[in-house]
């Protein structure tokens, strides 16, 4: 099956300012794709091109087999979109707005809206103007999901949602994936998408820096290790171990970062009396920063691929 989204050397300039500088993106059917990058990297620009809200300066973009510019309303009927800044008129109730948006899409069953609202704990009958930012964001989530689109495009979907609602949101994403829908969502925080995404694309200064399966990212991720011993230990016992970085020993305390297999470390530890040991969950943020900050070499490698 063809890609749900494909861009090829996509560029966008706003006057002299760069929006995108040759972005290559490939989103496969049925996957959840996390589109990551710092603010200003070009995430929103990409997303708005996909919806034909802005037009690329050059390069190719194909969404569900069509160019957004030519696909027009018929193409957008098949997409659910959550803007990064979800702004709507405050005088109406969520129910009125969602019913109206449903009509623009050819009708959405009231029961479907009710069900989504209930799961997100959204009050459909209050004036939108009286709702908190988080509750307004829930309206945005409902309108993106309610017509069960083939492709969901969401710009920073979890911004403003409290942790409990974020959990519900991730369930909705997982269900959409199970139902065969494709989800493309951006974030500037990896933690937000790592639990639900199959693959992650990292964009920086308008280019794709890396595309990885989340599992691969996790296996490569750096873990912080802290071990307390019964008695002081020599630094040399650990300093040379493979994949063990930034080794520090202070008396009975060892601090280091583990960037690969744990086995050599475990074997080395076995020679001493271990009081306690803690290995943090993979800190994907750290890996993320590596891509952000200094990966000129990485970006060239991606270009060559």
């Amino acid at each position: 099956m063809a890609d749900m989204i494909r861009t090829n050397a996509l560029t966008k300039r706003y006057g002299r300012r760069r929006g995108l500088a040759g972005l290559d993106l490939e989103v496969r059917p049925g996957e959840v794709y996390g589109f990551l990058g710092p603010n200003g990297a070009g995430k929103t620009t990409t997303i708005r091109i996909l919806l034909d809200l802005i037009r690329p300066t050059s390069g190719e973009v194909v969404v569900l087999g069509e160019t957004p510019r030519l696909g027009g309303p018929a193409l957008r009927r098949r997409i659910g979109y959550l803007p990064g800044d979800f702004v709507v008129g405050g005088a109406q109730s969520a129910r009125q707005l969602l019913t109206h948006l449903g009509h623009l899409r050819g009708g959405v069953a009231a029961a479907r809206i009710e069900a989504l609202a209930e799961r997100l704990d959204l009050d459909l009958d209050s004036r939108i103007g009286s709702l908190s930012k988080g509750n307004r964001q829930k309206i945005g989530v409902v309108q993106a999901f309610m017509h069960t689109p083939e492709l969901l495009v969401m710009d920073e979907p979890t911004a403003g949602l409290d942790p409990l609602v974020q959990q519900t949101f991730l369930e909705l994403v997982a269900e959409a994936r199970t139902a065969g829908q494709t989800v493309f969502m951006s974030s500037h925080v990896l933690g937000e998408v790592q639990r639900s995404a199959d693959r992650v694309g990292i964009v920086r200064e308008g280019r794709m820096v890396a595309v990885e399966a989340v599992d691969t990212l996790r296996s490569r991720a750096v873990r912080r290790v802290e071990v307390t011993f019964d008695a002081p230990v020599p630094v040399d016992a650990f300093a040379g171990l493979p994949d063990l970085l930034d080794v520090e020993v202070e008396g009975t305390m060892l601090r280091a970062r583990l960037a690969g297999r744990a086995d050599p470390l475990v074997k080395a530890l076995a020679r001493f009396g271990v009081e306690s040991i803690s290995i943090e969950e993979p800190d994907l943020e750290e890996l993320f920063y590596v891509y952000y900050a200094g990966s000129e070499a990485g970006s060239e490698a991606t270009d060559a691929a």
Binding site: L53, P73, P83, F86, V87, L104, R105
Partner: peptide
């Protein structure tokens, strides 16, 4: 006001 994005992301030309 930023409202137009949402409307035009719908099937409306």
């Amino acid at each position: 006001s930023g409202r137009l994005d949402l409307t035009l992301a719908h099937p409306v030309s």
